[in-house]
Write a protein that binds this DNA or RNA. Sequence first.
DNA 1: ATTAGCACTCTCACCTGAAGAGTGCTAACT
DNA 2: AGTTAGCACTCTTCAGGTGAGAGTGCTAAT
Lengths: 338, 338
Amino acid sequence: MLTERRAAILRMVVSEYIRTAEPVSSKGLVDRHRLSVSSATIRNEFARLEEEGYITHPYTSAGRIPSDRGYRHYVESLMAEEPVGADEQRTIEHQLHQVLGGLDEWLSLTATILAAAVGNVAVVTRPRATGSRLKHLQLVELHGEATLLVAVMDDGRVRQRILPAREPAHQAQLTERAQRLNMWVAGADSVAVRALVTDDLPPDEAVVLRAVSDLIDEERLAEETFLDGLRSVLQQPEFSSVDRMLEAVRQLEAYRVRSLLEHAAAGDLGGATRVLIGREHGDDTMQDWSVVVSNYGDAEGALGTIAVVGPTRMRYERTIPRVRYVSTLMSQLLQDVR
Amino acid sequence: MLTERRAAILRMVVSEYIRTAEPVSSKGLVDRHRLSVSSATIRNEFARLEEEGYITHPYTSAGRIPSDRGYRHYVESLMAEEPVGADEQRTIEHQLHQVLGGLDEWLSLTATILAAAVGNVAVVTRPRATGSRLKHLQLVELHGEATLLVAVMDDGRVRQRILPAREPAHQAQLTERAQRLNMWVAGADSVAVRALVTDDLPPDEAVVLRAVSDLIDEERLAEETFLDGLRSVLQQPEFSSVDRMLEAVRQLEAYRVRSLLEHAAAGDLGGATRVLIGREHGDDTMQDWSVVVSNYGDAEGALGTIAVVGPTRMRYERTIPRVRYVSTLMSQLLQDVR
DNA sequence: ATTAGCACTCTCACCTGAAGAGTGCTAACT
DNA sequence: AGTTAGCACTCTTCAGGTGAGAGTGCTAAT
């Protein structure tokens, strides 16, 4: 267990390193914090903290930097969260209400807002509509040879697909047909819709229903992620060499981040905000990155993930409350749509 | 006017510099191309080419590199395009048909494919639906207090917006109401729809029609761009310093690229593929970038832009035919949807 | 018109050495 | 016991210097 003094020292080291990105030296600590002990004492404590795995130093004669474990302890016990001030809340909320378009525009905007608020990469995934149901379908004549199927889900998602048409049809006929189908399938989930496809169904209707079923749980789309804030991350001093910067760009490509989130957010339903530091997320190729992640949505239905990805040297005090706040906001707004 | 020999030399310089990113030296040229003249002769010709503004050299004793004008002449008169081979065509077409989702997925995929094909950043804008018309509208009950308006355009775009509902309504009522509205507004453009909003219209219907009109020519959305290929650009040797790389990331942020395209693609309707080299696009802050751009769509209706953005040292021989090819493909596919 | 020859310029990679920062350890002190 | 002064040691960083190499521009000869 950490003595009180060592905990205090660890707090100073972590918060100072987060601020400056420079290894923290014993003398520097004493000077800047007007400590009443000498730097030699601090050095002794450093040595103990290092033995216990909370800090390391890059080479013999550099100051100390936090290890994953150090950050972990800092996040859990030492730091004081910086709450989202009333002004900032208003700003965020205001920006979020700017959007006029559909779900996607909204998610992409959310990523932008969050990225700006924390100065790191923000990721928002589209709600995975587990168990979502069809609200309504509509058929629209496109140009004789094709029909557009539009499906509205009960969580507000709208999906469309183009279907080939055997023969030209008028809109009126299509509407009537859609009407008929709606009576069958409104409120059904993808499994129920597929179950309706039997052999004695006219092939035209079977095509439509199969497509509807696909659209309801189209995972490939649901997986889409919205990402923003690349530039601000790259400006951080840890990427001040070409190699590291290229590596960062490579690592932050959407699909990698997505797989990162899978581990991170799995299992959680509620609004818990989790922090995964360095190696903790299990992907060793991204050991220098931390993730602050939270799921949003309502307990029963759609469930999306919102996260901030940044170097382990991240301002957790700021990031955690902001992710939590935005996540709550998203859940609310999603609830409102339902 | 360029003598034939000088033109040949310019061609070698440009194509070699594009390949290697190294300034081209007189001796190197003679050696690699087994020229029957000496390097001194080449040097004399270099001097002439430089006088006429086709090449420069970064410092006294480096080889020569093409100037904007040199590239321009190369693109217009000297290079031989590398046609898109049958295999490559098949690959691209096959990938493009992978998509199951809507327009946006399709555009985003196109950007990815094109970026991979040319190794630079590819940009695709959503078709600006100038003069697009409403095909069909539908109202869907969401949860008592809100109604979802879904509008399908004649170019296949689907847009939705949530409207507040004065009082709870059943789906059947809403469908009937949508039906009635459809009779009025199907086939109308945004102006016509707005014209229908008069004082003696029930306020509920006025709200819907106003929203429909908005959705038809929602420029803000039409402006959305899909961008891919950042990493491959950053790997090019011109960005081998941190500053240049950061600068590149900054410059390639979507909104800047978008404004670049505005100049580049303006005015053109057909399938012409244009090349803007270095300063030619008028944005001096991006003087080291070239743009290969083409509009796609059909002459009367929707019109989008597809482009490749990369350093002036770009493989124009490959890029131009590939942009042209993908653009044609997009136009076809868009036509098919109409 | 072409070319050999050569002085000149500029870059680049490499080294070197000094300055500085910070630690770890020991021995003395409280 | 814990704390501290002192000091040797390690490692980085940076400026400055140096030599090699690449390439040009020019001149004079062919």
